[in-house]
C-alpha cells in the first residue's frame, strides 16, 4: 500500500515580486537532483493554477495584500502537509507592508492609492480614477504576513533567501531532519 512516490511540491507567489522563485533557481546544478527527487504540482513553474492532488510541501512567496491572496493561501493550507514561508514578504509582509504605516495617515490604503493613481507628481492616469474593475481582487486594509492568516510550519528568511539556505532547508525537510538554521546561514536582507 505504501508504494514509494516522490514528494509533491507546490509553490505560489502572493504579494511578492517573484524574486524568491528566482532565488530557487540559485540552487544551481543541485536543482537537477532536487527535481528528480520531487514532483511539482500547482506552481508557476508548471503553470498549474489548481491542485491536482494533495501535496507534501507548499512554498509560499509574499504576504497577503488582497482577498485573492488569502483564498490562495487558505487553499495551500488545505492541500499541503507542510507550508514553508519563503522570504521576508511571506514572513513579515516585506516591501508591500510599507503601505501599512504611511506616516500620520488615518487611511493609509486610501492615501497610497490616491498618490499612486491620482495625486502623484509623475502620474499619467487619463481616467483620473483609482482602478475599480470588479475583476480586480479587493485590497485588504493592510498587508498581512502569512502566519497571521494560516499556520506556517517553516520560515526561510531573506530578501531573497540565498540558494544555499533554500537548498539546505528543502533537503533537510524532505529528509525529515530539519533542526533550524545555523547562525551564519541566514540574512534578513
Amino acid at each position: 500500500m505504501n508504494e514509494t512516490r516522490k514528494p509533491r511540491v507546490a509553490t505560489v507567489s502572493l504579494a511578492g515580486c517573484f524574486g524568491c522563485h528566482m532565488a530557487i533557481l540559485d540552487i544551481d546544478e543541485r536543482l537537477v537532483g532536487l527535481m528528480q527527487a520531487v514532483e511539482f504540482d500547482r506552481s508557476p513553474l508548471t503553470d498549474l493554477k489548481t491542485f491536482t492532488r494533495r501535496c507534501d510541501i507548499g512554498i509560499i512567496e509574499g504576504g497577503c495584500c488582497n482577498e485573492e491572496n488569502v483564498h490562495v493561501l487558505q487553499d495551500f493550507r488545505r492541500n499541503c502537509d507542510v507550508l514553508i514561508a519563503l522570504g521576508q514578504c511571506a514572513i513579515m509582509g516585506g516591501l508591500p507592508a510599507m503601505r501599512n504605516a504611511i506616516m500620520q495617515s488615518d487611511a493609509p490604503l486610501r492615501e497610497c492609492l490616491e498618490e499612486a493613481y491620482i495625486t502623484g507628481a509623475y502620474i499619467r492616469n487619463t481616467t483620473h480614477q483609482i482602478p475599480n474593475d470588479p475583476a480586480l481582487p479587493l485590497l485588504l486594509d493592510r498587508v498581512y504576513p502569512c502566519s497571521e492568516v494560516v499556520e506556517i510550519d517553516y520560515q526561510i528568511p531573506g530578501c531573497a533567501p540565498g540558494g544555499d539556505i533554500i537548498f539546505e532547508t528543502l533537503s533537510s525537510i524532505l529528509a525529515g531532519r530539519f533542526h533550524g538554521f545555523s547562525r551564519d546561514s541566514f540574512k534578513f536582507d
Binding site: A85, Q88, I91, M92, G94, L95, A97, M98, N100, A101, P145, S147, I152, Q155, P157, C159, G180, F181, R183, D184, F186, K187, F188, D189
Partner: peptide
C-alpha cells in the same frame, strides 16, 4: 517598523546583528 530589505542600515544594524547572534530566524 523594521523592514530590513529596504533599510539602508542593513548589515550595519546592531538590532539586526543581535537578532542574527541570538538565532532569531524570523519574528512572527
Amino acid at each position: 517598523n523594521h523592514l530590513c530589505p529596504i533599510c539602508e542600515a542593513s548589515g550595519n544594524c546592531e538590532l539586526q546583528a543581535m537578532a542574527y547572534r541570538l538565532d532569531m530566524t524570523a519574528p512572527t
